[in-house]
Amino acid sequence: MKRKQDFRILTGIGIAILLMIAAPQVYGQSNNPGPRIGIKGGANLSQFFVDQPTVEDENMKLGLHFGIFTKIPVNNFLAFQPELLYTNVGSKVSYGGSTVENILGIREGEVRFNLNYIQLPLALAINVGPLNIHAGPYLSYLVSSNVKNLRTSDLTTINTIELNKDDFNTIDYGLLAGVGFDVQNVTIGARYNYGLRQVGKDGMARNLTNNSKNSVAQLFIGFGF
């Protein structure tokens, strides 16, 4: 639980920094950004927050996301912002003790989960000058997965665990919220994605992740046309 709180605090700090940057210029810009389409990308910090007795430690995984977006004004203060992104998420989980090997069939050590999705965020953005606050649902489709088991002692790769895309739920969905700062054709911002569906489908994948859901903080930059 403490790791989860620290993760959300880190996300909140990033959003607060963006707000402080944007605040002095909020009222000096036009409220209506106009319709546009663009490309965006950035970094992901993701974690599952697995809660089970065999977990000794868990760390965030650094990933990336990139894709296209469009911003369609509804009025001077409200816009609809759908996007289509490729996003790489996961977690680094350390399991300990013979219990893991006997029950789950893997060696003691760190397991690195890498899940690659095509994501469709559907956000509504409230525009206040160059600042926008956006929120809404997202829907993701799992295109591939890569799961590795590493030795605790020297972190040398042993073998890829016998898990593949079929062991994880193909469809993920959840909620997103964030802030953005638009300067002419450039947008920067931070966002948090909170998954509502468990990652593991059944068998070993479900036992390892213990009904965990995707939790992803994002920093992004985009260029509109």
Rank of each mutant, 00 (worst) to 15 (best):
L176W: 00
R107W: 05
L219Y: 05
G38H: 01
L131Q: 03
N210C: 10
K40L: 08
T152I: 14
F48M: 04
T187V: 11
L142S: 12
L163H: 01
I68H: 12
S98K: 13
G189S: 04
D167G: 05
L219S: 03
Q198E: 13
V111E: 03
F48K: 01
V26C: 08
H65M: 06
G203I: 05
G34D: 06
G224Q: 02
V186H: 09
D182V: 11
P73F: 06
N146M: 14
M20A: 15
R191S: 00
G67N: 03
G38T: 02
N116Y: 08
G195D: 00
F7W: 05
I106F: 03
K201V: 10
L18S: 15
D202P: 09
A23S: 13
D6F: 15
I37R: 15
Y117Q: 11
F181V: 04
S94M: 08
H65T: 03
L78I: 14
S144W: 13
N102T: 09
G67L: 03
S145Q: 02
L196H: 05
P35L: 15
Y173W: 12
V183N: 04
V93M: 06
Y173G: 06
V93W: 02
P35R: 14
F225G: 03
Q47H: 08
T70P: 03
Q119L: 03
R36T: 09
R112H: 14
V128K: 07
L122M: 10
Y141V: 13
I39K: 11
R112Y: 11
N127H: 09
V179A: 03
P137A: 10
E58L: 07
T187N: 10
H65A: 05
N214H: 09
H65N: 08
T209P: 08
D166Q: 10
A190W: 04
N59G: 05
G200F: 09
G129P: 09
E58S: 11
P137S: 13
N193I: 00
K213A: 11
L196C: 11
L131D: 01
E83Y: 07
Y141K: 10
V199C: 05
I188G: 09
G178W: 01
F223Q: 03
F77W: 12
L142A: 12
